[in-house]
Design a binder for these strands. Structure first.
Length: 243
DNA sequence: CACCAGGTAGATC
DNA sequence: GATCTACATGGT
């Protein structure tokens, strides 16, 4: 069970209760430690607003998570709040994941594809994700049957990967962008949720516009670093409750 | 009791 | 194609 402590201003990240092999095989990539965030920040900070947002969220990193887990997690996230999202994922993990004994307690891994992919709708409904449960059911089956191949999608460019992900039930533009950004290293993706829409309009566009216009703006303004810009802006907007 | 929460699918213009 | 709206659930 990994333990993480960090103090960005002191330049310290401590990963304890792990070993060199796991660090090299797993955590190094998971925490995106190979990336020079200084370079990214310098480039983005040429924009004054982003400079402030970067100061505010200076320790942010984009984690490299697993596509399958991200697909289900972000389907659950749609029009939902974080405590309920966590709760639903916990229930699914307890029902369909593998038990992990640690320090006298039992934890559960995220469900394997074949477990959710062969589950009954009525079982999945028990996670209390409401109308999203049928999306979980349908999408799990689609991926399990190979109708959508996440590994293959990860190899495509951002535009085509998105097209592929949009076939999944419960996956729209925002969730697809999140999956690409957080599990497929497609850093030009700019997921637009309510907060990112607000903050983009607030600082840059100065009027209420469509999602497509927000996306177009981000492509033009931030290009291949759009995903990093999104993270700094999201964190800033969310914390400052920018409306 | 109305409104909201890290949007999406399906209907409609 | 771009824009409206219902949607499960639990909290305020």
């Amino acid at each position: 069970m990994l333990n993480v402590k960090s103090d960005y201003d002191k330049g310290i990240v401590v990963l304890s209760n792990t070993n060199l092999k796991d660090f090299e095989d797993i955590w190094y990539k998971y925490f995106d430690l190979d990336r020079d965030y200084g370079l990214i920040k310098d480039e983005l900070a040429k924009d004054e607003t982003l400079g402030s947002a970067i100061e505010y969220g200076r320790g942010i990193r984009i984690l490299n998570q697993e596509p399958w887990e991200l697909v289900i997690s972000f389907i659950i996230s749609a029009n939902n709040n974080i405590p309920r999202i966590s709760k639903s994922i916990d229930v699914l993990s307890q029902m369909f994941g593998e038990p992990i004994e640690y320090a006298g307690k039992t934890y559960y891994s995220f469900p394997a594809l074949d477990k959710l992919g062969t589950a009954e709708q009525a079982q999945i409904d028990l996670c209390r994700a409401g109308f999203r449960c049928k999306y979980i059911y349908q999408t799990s089956k689609m991926i399990y049957r190979g109708e959508v191949d996440l590994d293959a999608a990860a190899e495509l460019d951002t535009e085509n990967a998105k097209k592929e992900l949009l076939h999944l039930s419960g996956v729209g533009p925002k969730v697809a962008d999140c999956i690409m950004l957080f599990s497929m290293q497609k850093h030009d993706a700019y997921p637009v949720d309510v907060w990112v829409k607000r903050v983009t309009e607030y600082f840059y566009i100065h009027q209420d516009v469509s999602m497509n216009r927000i996306q177009a703006f981000a492509r033009e303004k931030f290009g291949h670093l759009a995903g990093f810009a999104q993270q700094y802006l999201f964190y800033f907007a969310r914390d400052q409750k920018i409306k």
